[in-house]
Design a protein around this nucleic acid. Structure first.
Length: 436
RNA sequence: GGGGAGAUACUCAAGCGGCCAACGAGGACAGACUGUAAAUCUGUUGGUGUAUUCCUUCGCAGGUUCGAAUCCUGCUCUCCCCA
């Protein structure tokens, strides 16, 4: 293999224009500009998939690597056993080991899709359980605990916030464990910097402090701001559901739609963070977008870029196709003319249910869209009726006018009906012959 | 241990014997306008229903009354003050 010539870029500067710097320790920028360095971010294995809330952190690592540095993703096999009190008002329940290990392996696989594991600045995934499992308690409180005072730990916001309601020793120790991670990676992997969300500042700084006191070493911290949405709702969620990276949990279609639906106010912020495009390219896209926001150029560009990275080209294509059929100027006849394969691909990501043909032919629309379809579309007949009367329901792109009529639309491909609640909620109903 | 206040639909919050399926606000959903955006306006927001009908709901269990979310008794939980 030929020695690679690494093109180094100023990482801090890169994050700055992307609006991704919340807090930064003095000297960080200069330290990184001296040459190849490593930085790490910790991921909590609380679920078996990352969601787009975590993606800010993932992108921070990606940008770090693109600047010529070595990113390390730490999955918290050890810390996940404890629970980070930051930003939590209650003591957390502990995860059981089997679940934890399963989650770890899933997250690891997902991280591998983003980072480049080849070259001299190859990314690395580490698990802090590897160095904690052999570390006994007495050694730990001597080697790590001796260097940090309780006074120092108590002064952290994450701890102070919990003093009134209570905080177990376990969670109180969390920052020390995380601090030790930093020390370990600093010592063994040349990790000079720990990155994280703004709520991690306190924990990260405990690490730099430990490195300074224990080894007279120098380490740095940089945190990213919490991503907000203009309407005040939480980023990365629709209703109460997270948008996951795992296609089994959130379909590529839904994933794509999340970005497409970003408001003008938010999308500018998002594209800076989630796109790998260069500064000039992004700025010209933004200018272009402002000329004609209705085209939603930014939303489309961003949605395509992210969906492709997460769900591959194939996943993106299906999501785009589904979107254009569901939201484009598709008329009923276009829908009918789709072949079954396309139909199935398009509807892969939308909720589906089955009903028997006899039920279809003998039920009024309101009942059909509630009880008969297993309350997937409407919870009750009354709700269905009200929505139909309010003009919010379509079947096969044709507005339903009366709740009492029997559904008599042509079936797509002889077996499907496309029900639509409002503008954005689609449901596929598969009609099966009785007895099957 | 003593004293006080409270528990109402997704959330906050009225109601304090019939006019209560329960004011109002937020949220959510839908319609109009748009660009699958935002803002705005309108409607819906326990179930059934063509319905001013009926059924189930106001912490839990009983009771008083022709009639209770509203009064009484017990229980459970929460908060505050004093020790």
């Amino acid at each position: 293999m030929l020695p690679q010539l690494l093109i180094m870029k100023d990482f801090v500067e890169e994050l700055r224009w992307r609006g991704m710097v919340h807090d930064i320790m003095p000297g960080t920028q200069a330290a990184l500009n001296k040459g190849l360095a490593a930085a790490y971010i910790g991921f909590d294995p609380t679920a078996d998939s990352l969601h787009i809330g975590n993606m800010v952190q993932v992108m921070t690592l990606v940008h770090f690597q693109k600047c010529g540095h070595k990113p390390i993703a730490l999955v918290g096999g050890a810390t996940g056993r404890i629970g980070d009190p930051s930003g939590k008002s209650d003591e957390r329940s502990l995860l059981d080991e089997k679940v934890l290990n399963y989650n770890l392996s899933c997250i690891k696989t997902q991280l591998e899709n983003f980072l480049d594991f080849d070259g001299i600045n190859a990314a690395e995934v580490v698990n802090n359980y590897d160095w904690f499992k052999e570390f006994n308690f007495l050694d730990f409180i001597r080697d790590a605990g001796k260097h940090i005072t309780v006074n120092y730990m108590m002064a952290k916001d994450s701890v102070k916030a919990r003093l009134a309601s209570g905080l177990s020793f376990t969670e109180f120790s969390y920052q020390l464990i995380q601090g030790y991670d930093f020390y370990y990676l600093w010592k063994h992997k040349n990790a000079k910097l720990q990155l994280g969300g703004s709520d991690q500042w306190g924990n990260i700084v405990t690490g730099t402090e430990l490195i300074r006191r224990k080894a007279q070493g120098e380490a740095f911290a940089l945190t990213t701001p919490l991503i907000t949405k203009a309407d005040g709702s939480k980023f990365g969620k629709t209703e109460d559901e997270n948008i996951w990276l795992d296609p089994e949990k959130t379909s590529p279609y839904k994933f794509y739609q999340y970005w497409i639906n970003a408001s003008d106010e938010d999308v500018e912020k998002y594209i800076r963070i989630f796109s790998l495009k260069e500064k000039e390219a992004i700025e010209s896209l933004i200018t272009e977008h402002k000329k004609s926001p209705g085209q939603r150029l930014l939303q489309r560009t961003l949605a395509e870029e992210i969906t492709e990275r997460v769900h591959s080209k194939n996943g993106l294509e299906k999501a785009v196709k589904a979107s254009s059929i569901l939201f484009g100027k598709t008329a009923t006849k276009d829908l009918i003319s789709l072949d079954e394969r396309t139909l199935m691909q398009v509807f892969e990501g939308i909720p589906q249910t089955e009903v028997s043909k006899t039920a279809l032919e003998s039920t009024d629309t309101a009942t059909f869209l509630s009880e008969t379809t297993h309350n997937l579309i409407f919870k009750s007949k009354g709700e269905a009726r009200k929505m139909i009367q309010g003009g919010g329901v379509s079947i096969n792109k044709l507005k339903v006018t009366s709740p009492e009529d029997i559904v008599n639309h042509d079936l797509l491909q002889g077996k499907y009906l496309l029900a639509q609640k409002g503008k954005k909620n689609y449901f596929l109903i598969k009609v099966i012959e009785a007895g099957t």
